[in-house]
């Protein structure tokens, strides 16, 4: 039951405990107003840089540095976006990013859920030790494996291909995702599977037809984490992709900067275009996302 308790939905509306209960209406409302005020000010400060980003992305060249700052661009110049896409092959960068992202995420979901299923559901010698090793790799700084991994891919002649950015994700998808999915699988009642097993279903069928269909929320969570990771990833493409035709969005925007350093409006438009999908992703998948964090159980008892 402890597992189920940890998988509580974060955004559930019933959170009565934190508010101090006071007698008079005035004393009850005053702290509330203060908190609202502080949240509004804080939220504004946190949102300010992004508002500034979107505002600048719509400005005329030369209007970026006007003092006092112009929050609402006048005139609004939507062409910044089309122009940014023209001066650099952003359509190609987007395509490259999507190819890597989709294939890597598929690998993470398939091989990660297989590993998680074995750790959550099957008994085999060495399970405890293997799971312990898996978890301890979470603490390993990535730079330790960075150089030998680069050399390995260089020997395989995989530099300047997408393979180094995709293939490793078909090898289990990383300890964090395995851990996350395992935690969720443990919350699915075992009886369902047992019934299927008695009906003659093998291990693969009970994984594929019983466990996975019930694991939608955690698969969505891992998918979202994976999307954001690959969309934002900078270091790995930087190391493995130097050909201009293979660059991802993260790299593309960076190279953009050196050459067109003065065209802030275009640079901001390109950056804004890269932020928007992540914002939409977060906005629509917020529930899964927060739930995934709660589900690791790391954040709970």
């Amino acid at each position: 039951m402890g597992q189920v308790g940890q998988a509580r939905v974060l955004s559930s509306p019933a959170l009565p405990q934190a508010v101090p209960r006071r007698s008079s209406a005035f004393r009850r409302n005053l702290p509330r107003a203060v908190v609202y005020g502080l949240l509004a000010v804080g939220g504004f400060i946190f949102a300010l840089p992004l508002l500034w980003l979107f505002s600048t992305s719509l400005k005329m060249p030369g209007h970026e540095f006007v003092l006092p700052p112009e929050w609402i661009p006048n005139p609004v110049r939507l062409e910044n976006y089309t122009e940014a896409f023209r001066v650099r092959p952003f359509a190609l960068f987007t395509r490259n990013t999507m190819v890597i992202l989709i294939l890597a995420t598929a690998g993470t979901l398939i091989t990660g859920s297989m590993s998680a299923y074995a750790f959550a559901r099957l008994r085999f010698p060495g399970r405890g030790i293997l799971f312990g090793i898996t978890l301890s790799t979470l603490m390993l700084p990535f730079v330790v494996t960075m150089v030998p991994t680069f050399i390995l891919f260089k020997q395989l002649k995989w530099i300047n291909t997408f393979a180094p950015l995709i293939v490793p994700y078909w090898a289990g998808g990383g300890a964090f995702n395995i851990f996350l999915m395992r935690q969720f699988f443990m919350t699915i009642p075992y009886e369902l599977e047992e019934a299927a097993r008695i009906d003659g279903a093998g291990f693969f069928r009970s994984y594929w037809q019983i466990t996975l269909p019930l694991a939608g929320p955690v698969l969505a969570t891992v998918g979202i984490f994976s999307f954001i990771h690959h969309w934002n990833d900078f270091l790995a493409p930087l190391i493995y992709l130097s050909s201009p035709y293979l660059q991802t969005l993260a790299l593309g925007i960076q190279t953009f900067r050196g050459e067109f350093g003065n065209q802030w409006n275009l640079l901001m438009a390109a950056s804004a275009a890269m932020v928007v999908p992540v914002l939409l992703m977060f906005f629509f998948a917020q529930r899964y996302f927060l739930r995934g964090v709660a589900m690791t159980g790391l954040a709970g008892r």
């Binding site: 091989t111 008994r123 293997l130 898996t134 030998p148 991994t149 390995l152 395995i178």
Partner: peptide, 27 residues
């Protein structure tokens, strides 16, 4: 059951060897 488990874990075991433990030793 154990055989099935190792088959399910095969990608991760390969990953652990090739992308984690191997590079750690090599490094």
């Amino acid at each position: 059951e154990a055989l099935a488990a190792y088959l399910f874990l095969l990608p991760w075991l390969v990953g652990l060897l090739v992308f984690v433990l191997g590079p750690v030793v090599a490094s």
